[in-house]
């Protein structure tokens, strides 16, 4: 069972299952690499950043430069961004999911509206099973928390799996550290 696995096993399982769910998994040593990735993904578009990201990595916004829009934008502005950057509060190896804890509606828009989303996750925040939610979510419930597992998808037309219906089409999970 997953619980008895070593840390390395847990990370490996997380990466495997996140990829199975069609997330694109990266491992990076710091947020400088993240800003390079974001700029590459955005092309000539803008990059929306959520407030949990700026709180955890205050330098990131500046490092991205003028292409970045700071937290707290109107939904209509965020909807025009090419890339959103959000912070993962936990990674769950059991399902390859990333937990987003988003209090403000404007932060949620960053993970939902842009076609490409980058989820930043501290290596130390990857846990073996869903039971990790008991502590991180349910001990003191935040306003709004979501387990996200890969890109938005639908199979509503003849069960044909189609990626990117309402939410992002590409989800990049960056394991930091």
């Amino acid at each position: 069972m997953v619980n008895t696995q070593t840390v390395d096993d847990t990370i490996a399982a997380f990466k495997q299952r996140a990829s199975d769910a069609r997330s694109i998994v990266h491992e990076m040593s710091d947020w400088h690499e993240v800003s390079a990735l974001a700029l590459e993904l955005a092309g000539s578009g803008t990059i929306a950043v959520s407030s949990p990201v700026t709180e955890a990595w205050p330098g990131l916004l500046e490092s991205i430069g003028e292409r970045a829009t700071p937290p707290g934008q109107d939904h209509a502005v965020t909807a025009t961004a090419s890339v959103g950057i959000v912070r993962g509060a936990l990674g769950i190896a059991e399902t390859g999911s990333v937990l987003l804890v988003e209090e403000h509606s404007s932060d949620r828009a960053v993970s939902m509206l842009p076609p490409v989303v980058v989820q930043l996750l501290d290596r130390a925040d990857i846990r073996p099973t869903l039971d990790a939610l008991l502590e991180r979510v349910f001990a003191a419930p935040p306003t709004f928390a979501s387990l996200t597992t890969g890109p938005s998808r639908t199979a509503d037309i003849e069960r044909a799996l189609t990626i990117g219906v309402h939410g992002p089409h590409d989800v990049h999970v960056v394991i930091l550290g």
Partner: peptide
């Protein structure tokens, strides 16, 4: 194994 989004809503967002 799990759907793409599993959301836990415990309070209204500010405002």
């Amino acid at each position: 194994p799990i759907t793409t989004y599993t959301t836990f809503i415990s309070a209204p967002a500010p405002g």
